[in-house]
Design a protein around this nucleic acid. Structure first.
Lengths: 238, 238
DNA sequence: GCATAATATTGATACAGATCATTTCTTCTA
DNA sequence: TAGAAGAAATGATCTGTATCAATATTATGC
């Protein structure tokens, strides 16, 4: 019974404690695993969903990373967010019925797909799942506020510094002092997300390195002086 | 029994259809009115809640307008959002237990206060209220994404144009083509929210007026050429 | 209705970052 | 491993916006 094996995966998943199953009593977990398609594989550039189509699913990132982007009428894309292990994609389109953005894998990734409808039914049945939903949404809102705050910072190096701080907080939630971070996204994606030119991203990296706050080898960043980085991030924000 | 009169207010409220009561069966509405402090009055500058204190309440704007702002360690304030009639304030702090921003009235206003705790109990009891919560959160996320998108626009006039479009969509949800809009906030607040200098806000207004897209008398804006305004908004966004 | 303060606009200048061009580095494939 | 294609960094120039200063307009209290 290979099917059962796949859908029964949630109980042994390393993310289970942070993910939606934590909202369901262990004895009823099978109810949840029935509505999940676990561990779907995505290569870099693969699309989870396109902007403007019927919104039908949530995706939980298991490994790897995704971005969401919004494309306006002139075809300009803006990267609205990055999603890492444990993050949930598709929350903002649940009410409207139409996807507000596209979601794309930015490295080889695994994600679990959950349909809106059966999830809503489960939520109605299990109050603890309803509580979890509110908690997840509340945190998602807090995260977008952080991002928004970051975008309101003026100088490019400050904005990049703030981005690195936020990113390191998200990737190293367990050990805040962990200083290594792997930037999964291209400079192009970072530039779009931060609202600055690609070249300016590079130059800003150079400045952060010269100031002695970070080191960089490829896409691997090491934060040497977190306090210094925070000082740079706090300059010239409205 | 004046107390009863006040708490029984929701059934006759003009916002009831958009507000939380719509998630509760009419026959049980009294359960909801019991946990609401309706029509609390606020003068310009009055504070709903301060950043960094215990988060305990949601506020629904009945009339008037509020802003939320985040203050960093250096005392720089960033206006993260504006809240108008029907909007709900305090959603993002529900999970963490601590307020992530301050909320301040920007004109004489009325707001209804709802405590988190009893609301959560009601939500567990009424699945339709749980559905509504998800819908409200989803829409709130969509709104912040709009804002974020706006902040990623480069040129100041484009950003202002986009802000005006979004603002008019929010204030005139019923009649999209309505072209009058009253900007409740000061130039300072707009500047902070848009991440540009106050002077640049003024200059950008002048440009929008010169281009023939809008007219302006004080804080009252009239959109003359919506298509033109949208074109300006779409220029030079990443 | 006037005086004062607060808010908003306009002007002049300097600088940060966009843009285009070029070089260096990295990654992928044969 | 070499070569090609892509991504990232660096350089030079020019434009847009921040900043500081001054003026105009709108609100507010007496």
């Amino acid at each position: 019974m290979p099917d059962k094996k796949i859908t029964a995966d949630c109980s042994s998943c390393t993310l289970a404690k942070r993910c939606l199953p934590s909202g369901i009593p262990v004895t009823d977990l099978y109810r949840f695993t029935n509505i999940v398609s676990t561990n779907q594989t995505f290569s870099t550039g693969d699309v989870l969903f396109k902007q403007g189509v019927k919104a039908a699913n949530l995706y939980v990132v298991k490994t790897g990373a995704f971005k969401t982007q919004i494309i306006n009428q002139f075809g300009d894309a803006h990267v609205s967010g990055f999603y890492l292990s444990g993050d949930i994609i598709g929350l903002e389109s649940m009410a409207g019925g139409v996807t507000l953005n596209s979601s794309i894998a930015i490295e080889p990734s695994l994600a679990c797909k959950i349909s809106y409808r059966p999830l809503a039914l489960l939520r109605r049945e299990f109050p603890s799942l309803s509580d979890l939903a509110v908690k997840i949404y509340s945190q998602a809102l807090a995260t977008t506020q952080d991002t928004q705050n970051c975008l309101s910072i003026h100088s490019a190096p400050s904005r990049l510094a703030q981005f690195l701080i936020l990113f390191s907080q998200r990737t190293n939630q367990l050990s805040y002092q962990q200083s290594d971070l792997h930037l999964n996204m291209s400079r192009q994606d970072m530039a779009s997300h931060l609202g600055i030119a690609v070249e300016t991203v590079s130059r800003s990296f150079t400045k952060l390195i010269d100031s002695g706050c970070i080191t960089k080898t490829g896409r691997l960043i090491q934060i040497i002086d977190r306090t210094g980085l925070e000082k740079i991030a706090q300059c010239s924000s409205y």
